Simulated assay, not measured.
Amino acid sequence: MLVVAVALVDGSGTVLMQQRHFDAVHGGLWEFPGGKVEPGETPEDAVVRELAEELGIVVDAEALETVGFASGQTVPREKGGKGPSRPLVILLYACRVWQGTPAALEAADLAWLVPGAIGDLAMPPLDYPLAEALCRHL
């Protein structure tokens, strides 16, 4: 499964993180906004779509900076961790320009953090190497 994630970086250098709804897989954990790449989409098109759906903002795909990736296994969807896991690759982009004000349309909460503090959050396992890659990138 291919997933995209985005580090929105504001003018002061802080990064937007979102908290997953508590009833979701990895509920309550913090993550970079993003989601699955749909069939027929490029990763960049998926970023544009996901940020519109999740945060209500408009992003130009040309404003995306490639940061890095992480890979591993998905967490089974069924409660109790049952069911098959699948290979997962997350592509992380940074974006410094967008239109609109980010809102938690599909998340429990949003927070702007300095890049060095992101690794201190409770996050899904693959977000930690992404946070490290972001600190090297910025």
Rank of each mutant, 00 (worst) to 15 (best):
K36T: 10
K36P: 00
K36A: 15
K36M: 06
K36L: 04
V37S: 03
V37W: 01
V37G: 01
V37A: 00
E38G: 00
E38A: 13
P39I: 04
P39H: 07
P39V: 02
G40A: 08
G40D: 03
G40E: 09
G40I: 12
E41A: 07
E41S: 04
E41D: 14
E41P: 01
T42L: 01
T42P: 07
T42F: 04
T42M: 09
P43Y: 07
P43H: 11
P43C: 14
P43G: 15
E44Q: 11
E44G: 12
E44I: 03
D45F: 02
D45N: 03
A46F: 05
A46C: 09
A46Q: 02
A46I: 06
V47R: 02
V47F: 02
V47L: 08
V48E: 00
V48L: 05
V48R: 02
V48T: 03
R49L: 13
R49W: 10
R49T: 06
R49M: 11
E50D: 04
E50T: 01
E50N: 07
L51C: 04
A52E: 14
A52V: 03
A52C: 01
A52T: 04
E53N: 14
E53G: 00
E53S: 10
E53H: 04
E53Q: 08
E53W: 05
E54R: 07
E54C: 12
E54H: 04
E54T: 06
L55W: 09
L55C: 08
L55P: 12
L55F: 06
L55E: 03
L55R: 05
L55M: 03
G56I: 02
G56W: 14
I57E: 07
I57D: 02
I57K: 06
I57M: 11
I57H: 08
V58T: 15
V58Q: 14
V58G: 09
V58A: 15
V58M: 09
V58K: 11
V59P: 13
V59Q: 13
V59E: 13
V59R: 11
D60K: 13
D60A: 13
D60T: 13
A61M: 04
A61F: 00
E62P: 00
E62Y: 03
E62F: 08
E62I: 05
A63R: 07
L64A: 07
L64P: 07
L64F: 08
E65A: 12
E65Y: 05
E65I: 15
V67W: 14
V67F: 09
G68Y: 15
G68W: 14
G68K: 15
G68V: 06
F69T: 11
A70W: 01
S71L: 04
G72S: 10
G72D: 10
G72M: 09
Q73A: 11
Q73T: 12
Q73W: 15
Q73H: 13
T74E: 05
T74F: 09
V75P: 04
P76L: 11
P76W: 06
R77S: 08
R77M: 10
R77F: 11
E78G: 00
E78R: 07
E78D: 11
E78A: 03
E78C: 00
K79G: 05
K79R: 14
K79E: 09
K79C: 06
K79Y: 13
K79L: 15
G80S: 08
G80A: 01
G81M: 03
G81C: 07
G81F: 05
G81I: 01
